[in-house]
């Protein structure tokens, strides 16, 4: 068994008296997609932010390539190769594709106080990076990001992370706000990132999307890891049940069932 790129060992996180994460242990390997499932409020965002260097764990350790690491802020995590892409792509709607792609690390020409932002080079690299991910419709780096579709914006953000040397890609609900077609697009890009040997942590509450791309699944309930299993070990229904807290879902189903019986087969809405 190879060493995982990123590993959490018994990580706890509390804000004052409120415990948000309890004893989380997770591993993700290169070329693997780890799906992090959980209902709203399960602690997914806190977990992501802990991995991305925004929060420090209250106890427990984060390991990269088997060595314990501590991040003083998101920039350090990024330099170690951990990139987070947020729901709306983390891109700037009123900036051009080229400028948005290179925010914070602008390519320049010239020297000293006369450094000039190299627009041509930025646009060229950005467009090439996005096209390599299969988005061939983007061919002009001067276009504004706000004019792209939701899926294209996500793809741009993922291409950007990969271009800047991400080894671990944290995708925070990338498909939540997208239509079916757009979501399929993003899922294809997730698979492309995996093919290139990245470790992908895919956060979602859409079980179907998770099952399409995931190799490994972790379900988070009220800040604790409720289940940790490999592809094919559980069915879709089982996962949905887990996410909703197991019993609650079964109860709901029973309720609907009895309702259907008492109304001679009509659904409650009818």
């Amino acid at each position: 068994m190879t060493t995982p790129i990123l590993e959490l060992r018994n990580v706890n996180k509390s804000f004052g008296p409120i415990d948000v994460l309890h004893d989380i242990s997770l591993k993700v390997h290169a070329g693997e997609v780890l799906c992090l499932l959980g209902d709203n409020g399960a602690g997914k965002s806190t977990l992501i932010k802990t991995m991305a260097g925004l929060f420090r764990p209250s106890s427990g350790s984060v390991l990269m390539d088997g060595k314990p690491v501590e991040f003083n802020g998101p920039r350090e995590a990024q330099e170690m190769g951990i990139s987070t892409v947020h729901q709306f792509g983390g891109t700037f709607p009123l900036m051009s594709i080229g400028r948005s792609f290179f925010v914070g690390v602008e390519p320049t020409r010239g020297f000293g106080p006369f450094k000039i932002y190299d627009r041509k080079k930025a646009n060229q690299i950005a467009v090439k990076a996005v096209q390599e991910f299969g988005i061939t419709r983007i061919d002009d780096g001067d276009r504004l990001v706000g004019g792209l579709s939701g899926g294209e914006r996500q793809s741009l953000a993922i291409a950007r992370a990969v271009h800047f040397g991400a080894r671990v890609l944290i995708l925070d609900e990338p498909t939540a706000a997208l239509g079916v077609k757009e979501a399929a697009h993003v899922l294809r890009i997730v698979l492309e990132a995996r093919r290139r040997g990245l470790a992908v942590i895919f956060i979602t509450h859409q079980v179907m999307h998770a099952m399409t791309v995931g190799d490994h699944f972790a379900v988070l309930i009220r800040g604790a890891l409720a289940a940790d299993f490999k592809k094919g070990e559980k069915t879709r229904e089982e996962i949905t049940d887990l996410m909703a807290g197991g019993e609650a879902m079964a109860e709901l189903e029973a309720e609907i069932e009895s309702h259907l019986k008492s109304h001679e087969g009509y659904s409650p809405a009818a």
Binding site: A52, P74, R75, Q78, T84, H86, G90, T91, F92, P93, L94, M95, R99, S100, F102, V103, G104, V105, E106, T108, K115, I116, Y117
Partner: peptide
């Protein structure tokens, strides 16, 4: 408009959190 510094200002106004995450 011609130095990286300006790019940071636009990024900040566009989305402050993303800008900070990008290391600005």
């Amino acid at each position: 408009h011609f130095s990286p510094f300006g790019n940071w200002i636009f990024a900040m106004g566009g989305d402050k959190v993303s800008a900070r995450n990008a290391g600005i």
